[in-house]
Every structure is written in C-alpha cells, then in structure tokens.
Amino acid sequence: MTTNPAPVQGIATREPGEAKPRSTVKLTRAEKRAIAVKGKISSPWASGIAIIIAILWTIPTFGLFVTSFRTSQDIREDGWWNVLARPTFTLDNYQEVLFGGSTNFIEYFINTVVITIPAVVIPISIALLAAYAFAWIDFRGREILFVAVFALQIVPIQITMIPLLTQYVSWGLAGSFWTVWLSHSIFALPLAIFLLHNFMKDIPPSLVEAARVDGAGHVKIFFQVLLPLLVPAIAAFAVFQFLWVWNDLLVALVFGSAQNVAPLTVRLGELAGNRGETWHLLSSGAFIAMIVPVIVFLLLQRFFVRGLLAGSVKG
C-alpha cells in the first residue's frame, strides 16, 4: 500500500510545501478538473444524502441560535421554527445573561480569558525549551527521558486529580487561578513536548551546526535559528490548547469552581443543572461561551486541524 493517511502527516508534522510534496505527480489545472468531473459520485441521491447530513448537523445549533434572540415569552409559547410567524427579535436575553445579577456571565467570561491565556503561554514556553534540549543537546539519559515524557501522554487527567487537589490544599493555593494555570500547563506538557520535538527534528541539522560554528550558544541558536522556523508548529499547538482550555469543564470544576475563578463552562453547566427551563438564558449563555472558540476556529482552521491530529491522545 502506498497510501499516505492524514494522521501521519499530522504526527510527522511536516509543513506542506516545506518538505516533501504530498504526491510526487504534480497535476495541471486542466488534468485536475478532468479528474474532478469524472471522479464525482454525481447522482442526485448522493447530493441528496449529503444535503440531509449537512442539515442534520446544522439544525440543532441554528435552532438554539434563533431561540437566543426570541423573547422569553415566545420561547415558552412555541418552538423556534415558528419564528417567522411572529418575527420579533431581541437582544434582551444577552443583556440579561451577561449583566443580570443572577447570571452575571461577563464575570465568568473574564475568568475564562484569565484562565486561558497563561494556560496556553506557559506550557508552550516550557515545552519549547524541553523539546529543544531533547532534539539538539546531547546529554545522558536523553532518549529514555524523552520516551518517558512521550508515554505520559496516555495518563488520563482523572487519575491525577485527587492527589493534585490534596497538594494544592496543603499549600493553601486551592481555589485560586494559580492552581488552574498550573494544572492545565502540566496536562499540556507531554503532548506539547512531543509535538514540538517532532518539528524541531525536521529542521536541517546543518542550520544548527552552522550557527554553532559561528560561536552561538544554545540560547542564541534557540531564539535566532529555531524559533522563527517553529512558528507554524507553535500556532498549531497554541490553537489546539486554546480551544481545549477554553472548552474544558473537568479541570475547571475540580480546581477552579470557586465563583471568583470559575470559567463560563462551569457556570453554564450550573445553569443547565439548576434552571433547566430558562431557555432564554441558557441559549444566549451558550452562545456567549461559544463565540470566541468558533471565531478562533474559523480563522485558524488549518492550524487547528494539525494540532488536533497530533493531539488526539490528550486528556
């Protein structure tokens, strides 16, 4: 078999175009079009099925989205598909869920931001350094340490939680942002190191050697030679980690469920548990929690896919 499955691309982490091209045969535009015309399964049945699946996958989100702009009375009255019968739209739900005293989502939104940014920056920096050492510094026990870190990817985060929490409590740190940052950083490290190490290994050794001959130390090589080349890899991991942390519920529940620290996901889950029928708040609240990841995703989809492929083991 000479197939070239995508996950391998992701794991081997090669920039398309930078190293080997995917297929050795470059097709001209006309040839491609010819294949496209012939290659399509172009029966009306096929397009019908595709459209049905697309609708199935979109309707649920669309329905809640429409609902979030209806008045709370309309929402209780009938389903969102009747919206065209009485097209009254309002932003009151968003107003209430963001600033209303009982929900106050704006505060939780800020908590999510405060949690997410360091939880992305810190593990990336630590992992970059470690990955550099694993790739370019010769020291004893290097191989075995790297394999150990790699293997740690399979540890489910659940198994670490009780001892970690006990430790945080005994340090008097429990319930602060610090423990949430620390926990997210720890959980991200094995994957980040593995991923960035793979990228670093792909950089031609001659580049590093040349810099070394010029008398550059490790720090200089790291910042001036390698870092610029690693931007795509860092972006891939950053987008993955950003979405992971922003959307996380478990870590936040265990380490940061105090009101002062709790992120949107925790608050939203609470709201769904206690007041399952207040759909005008739940719908608008859900979209407030979703808007940032959706924008990040739409803008940086390419990086996200690569991070995802490599990061599928995490959690």
Partner: peptide, 21 residues
C-alpha cells in the same frame, strides 16, 4: 466546515444545544 464546527465548541455548549432539541 459545517460538519466540523461542533468540534470547536465546548461539550457543555453542545449538550445545551441538544437538550433543547
């Protein structure tokens, strides 16, 4: 993109979407 979009939102958000369904 339509089918991939649910990957980017939180599972909590997805659960609320479906509870409404």
């Amino acid at each position: 993109t339509l089918m991939f979009l649910p990957m980017s939102i939180s599972l909590v958000g997805a659960s609320i979407i479906w509870r409404f369904m």
